[in-house]
């Protein structure tokens, strides 16, 4: 299941979607709105996406993950619009034969999604300021087309 939704995400529903009798392990990752980043207090986040490209990019990441690991089932759901404190913005579930692969694949999918997929978050700080999050500097890698790099690795 790959989906972008403005509705609240039920993580257990996403976990259910990767159920397989061939799987000995399932990993569920839930990303949610954090109240404090250091001293700064967040009231809520708001997400925006370029939906057609975001869906295509998530599909490419899932395909690439299937090349790297022996995945039974894999689901990625991202919420857009306002996401309140403690609510889920992203849920990734992966099932595999053995646990190591599902831990690795889920972590890789979340890391790559944060680099490759055109989705943006806006911070609503408690002091009344708002700010689009556009990371710069060393933590950022220029996106590359994953399809182009798949054959090479």
């Amino acid at each position: 299941m790959i989906s972008i939704t403005s509705d609240a995400i039920d993580p257990l529903e996403v976990l259910e979607s990767v159920k397989s009798n061939q799987a000995g392990a399932s990993v569920l990752f839930v990303g949610s709105t954090r109240q404090f980043t250091g001293e700064k207090e967040t009231l809520q986040l708001e997400y925006e996406c370029y939906e057609s490209m975001a869906i295509a990019k998530i599909q490419q990441l899932v395909d690439a993950a299937r090349d790297k690991w022996n995945i039974e089932q894999c689901s990625v759901v991202h919420r857009i619009g306002v996401v309140g404190l403690g609510e889920s913005s992203i849920v990734v579930a992966v099932s595999t034969g053995h646990r190591k692969e599902s831990f690795e694949a889920a972590a890789w999918l979340v890391d790559e999604l944060k680099i490759q997929v055109p989705i943006w978050k806006k911070e609503f700080w408690a002091d009344g300021k708002t700010e689009w999050v556009h990371p710069s500097g060393d933590q950022r890698r220029i996106p590359e087309n994953i399809n182009a790099s798949r054959g090479a690795s």
Partner: peptide, 10 residues
């Protein structure tokens, strides 16, 4: 064509 500012999903 789209301009893609640094992304921050997740």
């Amino acid at each position: 064509i789209a301009l893609i500012p640094p992304v921050s999903g997740g």
